[in-house]
Amino acid sequence: MKKTTIVFILSGILAVHAWAGPGNDRTRLRNAHSKGQFTFGGGIGIGGLQYPHGNDYLQFGEVTIEHSKLPYNVRADYGMTNDISIGAMINHFNARVEVKDNTDPQNKNGFDYKSTSVLLRASYHIYLGRNYVWLDPYATGMFGYHILNSIPFGDNNYFEPNQSGIAWSFQLGLNIYPFQNFGIYLEGGYGTNIANTGLVIRF
């Protein structure tokens, strides 16, 4: 899974770079991304794969991880240059890790988790040319900390829950601005979430 995702992301970056081409006019009127620009966004996602995890319980039975609620997140970015922005994102999701006893399917134990992550992010924006100033493709790396709160369930739950810890994510994204200061974003990748989408505004 990790290798597939990394290959997907790198392929996407290379494809967009190749498509944009080195000879494009980089003169900017009001490009999708520019130095000094503030961007704020908020939306939902598809649950992360990093945590919570259930590897420690596999000797006890079948482990399933279900994200019971779509992650939601908010983010803010500032354009340091015409190509690079930095910012932060807060992400929240709920998930259930369930261990079904291989000797008795009625014996189910596990944890309900609430996860909140705070991540710093740095993005590299790709200029597509003067005809596509309403599109802002980018690659983002995020690094931060996730706080996991766990509630155990099951009559025979002797397991230790996952702990809070380091969080990271790498996403290939796209801001689309049909209006001057308002648009939508799409992100896909690996990490805290595997996909995000939502609304974005810029100043």
Binding site: H53, Q59, I65, D104, N156, L186, A195
Partner: peptide, 23 residues
């Protein structure tokens, strides 16, 4: 992005013995 299901089975490292019961 949607190709990744939000409900997953943890099966990457299934051990040789996987029937320890907590009952």
């Amino acid at each position: 992005a949607l190709a990744f299901n939000s409900c997953t089975k943890e099966n990457s490292e299934i051990p040789e013995i996987n029937n320890i019961s907590t009952e």
